[in-house]
Amino acid sequence: MTQQRLKAGFGYGVVATIAMSILMLLALVSGMSPMPQPIPKVVVAHLVGSGAPKPILMALAVGLHLGYGGLFGAILARIARPVTLRKGISLGVGLWVIMQVTFLPFLDWGLFGTAITPQIAVATLVLHLVYGGVLGWSMDRDMPSTSGESPTTAD
């Protein structure tokens, strides 16, 4: 049962990552995003070099972003029973904090993106709340809880 739960968590993590990515891309395309480029793409370009062909950079960025989201979905599924909306949002906020203090400084964007604009912190928080909300709302929604609590309302 644990392996099946990990696979489900990974799948729901990927779905949640797709939801946040769609919102991120819509904001970028509409000009509403304070980010100059998608963060996963910038991270990959820093790791492999910005001279790599754009299709390769994008494929790596998408793959790593989906894998990262799926991995943390699986981790949440492993440690939380049931996965609830509150637990999903807590994970999203935790991942947001990690991003703010590790990835953004790595990109020379500063803590919380302040080297570019403080609006990056708010925009990425919204994206991570979407990730956590989708994951927490969907993961155990159709599974009966052993405690009798609804996954969308339980702590």
Results as ranks from 00 to 15, higher is better:
Met1Pro: 13
Leu6Met: 12
Gly9Ile: 13
Phe10Pro: 11
Phe10Thr: 11
Tyr12Ile: 09
Gly13Met: 09
Gly13Cys: 08
Val15Trp: 01
Thr17Lys: 08
Ile18Gly: 05
Ala19Val: 05
Met20Asn: 13
Ser21Pro: 05
Ile22Asp: 07
Leu23Trp: 09
Met24Ile: 00
Leu26Gly: 06
Ala27Arg: 13
Leu28Glu: 10
Val29Pro: 00
Ser30Leu: 03
Gly31Leu: 10
Ser33Ile: 03
Ser33Pro: 03
Ser33Ala: 13
Pro36Gln: 11
Pro38Ser: 06
Ile39Phe: 01
Ile39Thr: 10
Pro40Phe: 01
Lys41Gly: 00
Val42Glu: 15
Val42Lys: 11
Val43His: 00
Val43Tyr: 05
Val43Glu: 00
Val44Tyr: 09
His46Leu: 06
Leu47Asn: 01
Gly49Gln: 02
Gly51Phe: 06
Ala52His: 06
Ala52Glu: 12
Pro53Phe: 06
Pro53Met: 07
Lys54Leu: 14
Leu60Phe: 14
Leu64Val: 15
Leu64Ile: 15
His65Leu: 04
Leu66Asp: 07
Gly67Cys: 06
Gly67Arg: 03
Gly67His: 03
Tyr68Ser: 09
Gly70Thr: 10
Gly70His: 09
Leu71Met: 13
Ala74Val: 05
Ile75His: 00
Leu76Pro: 01
Ala77Lys: 12
Ile79Gln: 08
Ala80Gln: 14
Pro82Thr: 01
Thr84Cys: 02
Leu85Val: 14
Leu85Thr: 15
Arg86Leu: 14
Gly88Ser: 03
Gly88Pro: 10
Ile89Cys: 11
Ile89Glu: 08
Ile89Lys: 02
Leu91Ala: 11
Gly94Phe: 10
Gly94Trp: 03
Val97Pro: 07
Ile98Met: 15
Met99Asp: 08
Gln100Leu: 03
Gln100His: 04
Val101Ala: 08
Phe103Trp: 08
Pro105Ile: 04
Pro105Ala: 06
Phe106His: 04
Phe106Arg: 02
Asp108Thr: 05
Gly110Gln: 06
Gly110Trp: 10
Gly110Asn: 09
Gly110Leu: 09
Gly110Lys: 11
Gly113Leu: 10
Thr114Gly: 06
Ile116Gln: 14
Pro118Gln: 05
Pro118Glu: 06
Pro118Asn: 11
Pro118Cys: 01
Gln119Pro: 00
Ile120Phe: 10
Ala121Thr: 12
Val122Ala: 14
Val122Glu: 04
Ala123His: 15
Ala123Ser: 15
Thr124Met: 13
Leu125Ala: 12
Val126His: 02
Val126Ala: 15
Val126Pro: 07
Val126Gln: 03
Leu127Gln: 12
Leu127Ile: 07
His128Asn: 13
Leu129Gln: 04
Val130Phe: 09
Val130Tyr: 03
Gly133Trp: 02
Val134Ala: 09
Leu135Asn: 07
Gly136Trp: 05
Trp137Lys: 00
Trp137Leu: 12
Ser138Lys: 03
Ser138His: 02
Ser138Leu: 15
Met139Thr: 11
Met139Gln: 08
Arg141Trp: 13
Ser145His: 01
Thr146Cys: 00
Ser147Thr: 15
Glu149Asp: 13
Pro151Asn: 12
Thr153Leu: 08
Ala154Arg: 04
Asp155Glu: 07
